[in-house]
């Protein structure tokens, strides 16, 4: 982020309060990721453990009942892969 886009001290809200609810969504933490989770649907039993453990709450269920991560927010922490009961999630190296 360039220096000029950051607010000066006179521009801050009172006590640095955040006035817009859910504005953390504007922060696309997916840019931190070096590995991405990939689901193997042949092994997936649609149990939802990956969704429950995701610390970013960025895993959702699609129309067919399978799970997927929102790559705007997935940091690639690998917790879903670690916790998956059937080991259907593998972490794959991101390539630039």
């Amino acid at each position: 982020m360039s220096e000029s886009r950051l607010p000066g001290w006179k521009d801050l809200t009172l006590g640095l309060a955040i006035l817009e609810p859910m504005s953390a969504r504007n922060n696309l933490t997916g840019s931190w990721r070096s590995e991405r989770p990939v689901w193997d649907h042949t092994k997936c039993i649609k149990c939802g453990v990956c969704q429950m453990y995701c610390p970013e709450a960025c895993i959702s269920q699609d129309a067919d009942g399978y799970f997927q991560a929102d790559m705007d927010y997935c940091k690639g922490c690998g917790i879903c892969s670690r916790e998956c009961w059937t080991q259907c999630i593998t972490m794959q190296q991101e390539e630039v």
């Binding site: 982020m1 950051l6 801050l12 006590g15 640095l16 309060a17 955040i18 609810p21």
Partner: peptide
């Protein structure tokens, strides 16, 4: 709803 007391990263 508002947030009071968020993290102040080194930028702010």
């Amino acid at each position: 709803p508002i947030t009071m007391g968020p993290v102040g990263i080194p930028d702010i």
